[in-house]
Amino acid sequence: MSPDGGLSTTGSLLAMAVGCAAASLWLLLPRGESGMRERAARRFGTLLGAVSLTLFVACGRRLGGIGEEVIFLVVSLVAVVGAAATVVTRSPVYAAIWFALALAGVAGVMLVIGAQFLGVATIVVYAGAILVMFLFVLMLAQPTGMAAYDRVSNEPLLSAVTGAVLLGLLTLFIGRLSAGPADCCSFPLKATALAGGGTAVTGQARQDTDPLAADHVARLGGELFGRHLLAVEAAGVLLLVALVGSIAIVSRTPTEEGTVPQPRRVAP
């Protein structure tokens, strides 16, 4: 992907990491095995996953300071490990709990990148509302143990390979972004364009768009309710429609299997 040797080393490391990740996912996904084989596959898969994550970390870029680097590493590892465990866990209740851990990691990543409001909103909306709803449905629908369909997967090998191809392509593309000024990302910064297209960004424009500014939430709210006011209204209508629709669907109790509920007769 690059003429010099350093990046091709990184490329081969990344290819190894993606391959290890695919093999690890294939080993960890439920395949209807049991006993020693399943335990051995699970251990080997965990080992391969750890190797893959180590390789990814080794290919990572050096961030500014050691503190920022360590914090980003910890929260992103929490997010990725939680996500992988969500996908491969047999019990759906444990999958939901692992998903909560992944959400905590994602919220941490958002905090580090500079989206404080969104990090907190992710915790509140997802972990506080959506995940609890999932758990309610799980408890209603599957109160006991593991079912047979939790112990098998549809085509685990093919889906792991698909994931590896997608992850490989995405990391390749992201690696190319860092290699140099490509045509794909040479758009001028909005602040630069606003400041007259020059190279120097005035202090006012810089302050307007700095995601780490002190009044971050106020600026985000101003953008949300200023430029995107119509979209906010549409989102409110969408929430209302979803509420009404879900109530309308759930209040139609299914009758016998295969029978179509008769429409209510209107008195003449």
Binding site: L25, L29, F56, A79, V80, A83, A84, T86, V87, P92, A102, V106, A147, Y149, D150, V152, S153, N154, E155, P156, L158, S159, A160, T162, G163, A164, L166, L167, L170, T171, I174
Partner: peptide, 16 residues
């Protein structure tokens, strides 16, 4: 990208 890929693998392979 990693989260997207893991979600894709999950939605392709799991049956619950």
């Amino acid at each position: 990208a990693m989260l997207l890929t893991l979600g894709l693998v999950g939605i392709l392979s799991r049956r619950n």
